[in-house]
Design a protein around this nucleic acid. Structure first.
Length: 323
DNA sequence: CCCAAAATAT
DNA sequence: CATATTTTGG
């Protein structure tokens, strides 16, 4: 009954890496960048009337779709960061737009593109909440702990509520034993499907930290799986956080050049490496008014292999210290 | 047209 | 900050 929670990753390993889940992700990211780099975006017409963003189907050489009609620079974070030349950083938000179609000033008043919660980001989310415990699992803290660039408190809050609902749903179905496994009990109240794989795609991808269930059960509030805080060494003058992912529906691109980031054709395993970026240089954070905030020294984030191969890489990222 | 996810409002 | 509602994307 309870032995399941011991090896939950054994389970999610099967469903998690379903390549198809993250495949479209990489494509979305590379498309605009490559397009711009190749300069084949057909900038002929000032007003781009065509913009068909297909989800997948990578059959043809893929004629790069023209850049979005408008870019966005809502990023409170410094778009010009890039402290290290090698940091393959792709933020949810990009710099400003260069090709001014209307000549207007999109400096402000621009809506931020829809945030896409990719499994990787969600993994960070769950991990952050897991390490924080229900007590401190508040949007603000979570957001800070996640250290994902372009992620705002609103995003976390919205996702958090959904996640809570997901947890509550699971409680009702996993009462007694079934463990973290998906109950075959579908429907429940005639709601959308059941707890099956078809339900919460994203949530199912991430392991559910046992503690989130039944607050009255067990007295261990914040159960830390493992906190190798000692990993805070100055490895090198450069942090390589190629882990978290923040993808945007419409990846904006600035008129400036983008680094070709080398090549992501077929690395060691044959699967693309996601050029995701973790918040690199955020503001030094204003201040934490809450004294009770236990300063999380740091935590490691294990990155599951995006592809289905057995080689699972473990990426250790640590707070830059500013957050 | 329906459903899910995210954003926004309360 | 939490919840409810509206909007948007699939």
């Amino acid at each position: 009954m309870r032995e399941d929670d011991s090896n939950w990753f054994s389970r999610w390993e099967e469903e998690l890496p379903s390549l198809e889940e993250l495949m479209p992700l990489s494509q979305t990211l590379i498309t605009p960048d490559l397009a711009l780099a190749f300069d084949i975006t057909n900038p002929t017409n000032t007003t781009n009337t065509n913009n068909h963003n297909s989800s997948l189907h990578q059959n043809q050489p893929l004629p790069p779709p023209p850049p979005p009609p408008a870019a966005v620079s809502p990023t409170p974070t410094n778009p010009l960061a890039s402290p290290q030349p090698n940091s393959g950083d792709f933020a949810t938000d990009s710099g400003e737009l260069g090709s001014g179609a209307g000549g207007d000033e999109p400096a402000r008043t621009l809506k931020r593109p829809r945030l896409v919660w990719t499994p990787q980001v969600h993994k960070r989310f769950v991990d952050a909440v897991a390490h924080l415990g229900i007590k401190n699992a508040v949007p603000k803290t979570i957001m800070q702990l996640m250290n994902v660039d372009g992620l705002t408190r609103e995003n976390v809050a919205s996702h958090l509520q959904k996640y809570r609902l997901y947890l509550k749903r699971m409680q009702g179905l996993s009462s007694g034993g079934g463990g973290a496994g998906n109950g075959t009990v579908g429907g429940g109240g005639g709601l959308t499907g059941g707890t099956d794989a078809a339900t919460d795609h994203l949530f199912a991808s991430s392991p559910v930290p046992a503690h989130f269930l039944h607050p009255g059960r067990s007295n261990s509030d914040h159960f830390l799986p493992f906190v190798p805080v000692a990993a805070l060494q100055h490895h090198h003058h450069q942090q390589q956080m190629v882990a978290a992912a923040a993808a945007v529906a419409h990846p904006q691109l600035q008129g400036q050049y983008h680094r070709p980031m080398g090549h992501f054709g077929s690395p060691t395993n044959g699967q693309f490496e996601h050029p995701f970026l973790a918040r690199q240089t955020q503001q030094p954070v204003h201040r934490m008014g809450a004294p009770v905030h236990n300063a999380v020294p740091g935590y490691v984030e294990d990155l599951e292999s995006a592809n289905g191969n057995e080689g699972r890489k473990v990426l250790t990222l640590f707070p830059t210290g500013d957050d």
